[in-house]
Write a protein that binds this DNA or RNA. Structure first.
Lengths: 189, 189
DNA sequence: GAAAATGTGTGATTTGGATCACTCGTTAAT
DNA sequence: ATTAACGAGTGATCCAAATCACACATTTTC
């Protein structure tokens, strides 16, 4: 839980009493590789703050192809946010790629914390602001760039992930075929 | 300003005193067709709440092609949010497509309101939440759908815009060429 | 440690959509 | 009213990336 405190205090300072209260809304969960935190069709009970491990958030389209909406690592939040915020069944999967731990927060907890502590509402607003900007940049990337450029951007955003996860997942994130991505490497060398 | 009050009260009730205070941070601006509210390279002073009119938020890529990030109509918020939140020069344009009016809010105003009134921080958080979800859905659309499907989704999201704006702008929003979009019509009939 | 599953590179072929090029209406502008 | 600017449809051509089809290496798994 120390990590949680640090994570929040990176944005707003907390006293012990406040943190004790905040803590009560989070529960720790150990996750093993290949385990699903969220499965299509299920109720989306939680959003997750990653303490350790790597995860992918993806969905399967009508043709059975996978598309990755988000990767998540230490200190990232993740969920099927469409299902979570609208309280509808999951349309996505959240799968663990490297053993780790997450903190779970219900929508009720999120809203209660926001209502009770102005600080926490501020915290969540800032996080959303950053997320919003990142998504807009990704849309711009999808609208106008070549596979080459997308790969280069990705390398800058997540340099560490390049080594740690299969290339085919990167392709699914960038909206490019596995083969095309593979050929980029060889060409640029 | 009555519209502003209604807009906020759709999410949280306000008393007169609160609204009087809130009002002071907004300024009304009349906008004419073809006018730019934000121009690439300029400082991004405001975000805008649309009172009347239609607007497009777009950028120009390295090849000189336009891509539309957002359309905005009555009760929508818009800006170059990358420049606005990060206080960097605009990388986008905001152009008026139909005469109207907007309310302008500085980043300072936004943050001051959020800090002073918990209600307003809540308001902005909810707006961001909805925006975040919408952007994720758009990313999913860009990753997995055909031009046909994109056009159909667009028709459902903005049925009114179909009539009111040139088709070529819709193409620029969907990431499809003008010609391909045009052929969709003829084919589906 | 053998067998199965998974990841990755790379050639050959196909294809959906971009691009180019023109026509014909319909609005704006003077 | 005449000209110019813009929007929209449609045919012909081209091309980047998807798809298909392997080979080979590297992990898992039992």
């Amino acid at each position: 839980m120390e990590k949680l405190r640090k994570h929040i205090e990176a944005i707003t300072p907390l006293n012990d009493e406040e943190f004790e209260y905040i803590k009560t809304f989070f529960s720790l969960k150990k996750v093993r590789k290949k385990q699903y935190l969220i499965h299509e069709g299920d109720e989306v009970k939680y959003e997750y703050l990653v303490i350790k491990g790597i995860y992918k958030v993806f969905y399967i389209d009508n043709d059975g192809k996978e598309h990755i909406l988000q990767f998540a690592q230490e200190n990232w939040w993740m969920s099927d946010y469409i299902g979570y915020f609208k309280q509808k069944p999951a349309s996505m999967f959240v799968e663990c790629l490297e053993n780790g731990e997450v903190l779970c927060l219900t929508l009720y907890g999120r809203e209660k914390l926001s209502a009770d502590l102005h600080k926490m509402e501020h915290f969540f607003r800032l996080k959303l602001t950053n997320g919003f900007v990142a998504l807009q940049q990704r849309i711009a990337l999808l609208l106008s760039s070549t596979p080459q450029e997308r790969y280069e951007e990705f390398s800058q955003w997540y340099p560490d992930l390049l080594q740690r996860i299969p290339k085919k997942y990167i392709a699914e994130f960038l909206g490019v075929s596995r083969e095309t991505l593979s050929r980029l490497h060889s060409d640029s060398k």
